[in-house]
């Protein structure tokens, strides 16, 4: 069974025909040609496919494309304004927050989502006071970024980069 969907990907409107079984990740990569989101585990465990979906960070490997007809998707590529990088992307470079780079687009999108959640005052599992203010401490950043794995182990740099982004 096929379905007709429309997505807005990195600011550009795209119409595509997808089999109902197609994940949002496959629709982005194979249908739209947006190659920033990566297929790591394909089971929701690694975070490499993370994008901003209607403004919030989300994995795309366990989302069905037909269910997200009309969605606004921002990939790591769309975070940048041409050659001008997003401040979080700059921070990843500055802090050497990557080695091979495969997980980086997902890390960066997740980091942007984390910063929005911190700004909105959302608590995390390690926040001591659920009703108090939240700060981008190392512990908070580690907890909030735990859905993004980095097999090169660039975590020290990633935590620093996300904290830089919160400044």
């Amino acid at each position: 069974m096929d379905g007709e969907i429309e997505l807005r990907v990195d600011g550009r409107r795209r119409r595509l025909r997808v089999d109902t079984r197609t994940t949002l990740l496959d629709a982005l990569r194979d249908g739209v040609g947006a190659l920033a989101p990566k297929k790591g585990c394909d089971h929701g465990q690694c975070g490499a496919c993370t994008v901003l979906l209607d403004g919030r960070r989300a994995i795309t490997c366990l989302a069905l494309a037909v269910a997200h007809d009309g969605a606004e998707v921002t990939t790591a590529e769309g975070l940048a304004d041409g050659e001008r990088l997003h401040p979080v992307q700059e921070a990843f470079l500055e802090r050497d927050a990557l080695q091979c780079g495969f997980c980086t687009p997902g890390q960066v999108c997740s980091a942007v989502g984390v910063l929005d959640e911190l700004a909105a005052g959302h608590p995390s599992a390690v926040t001591a006071d659920l009703t108090g203010p939240v700060e981008a401490t190392d512990d908070e950043v580690r907890e909030r970024m735990s859905g993004n794995l980095c097999r090169c182990g660039a975590y020290v740099g990633i935590v620093a980069a996300v904290r830089d982004g919160a400044r």
Partner: peptide
């Protein structure tokens, strides 16, 4: 709720 899954899963 906060102790389950990851941020980008809890958003879905």
């Amino acid at each position: 709720v906060l102790s389950g899954a990851s941020g980008q899963i809890r958003n879905l």
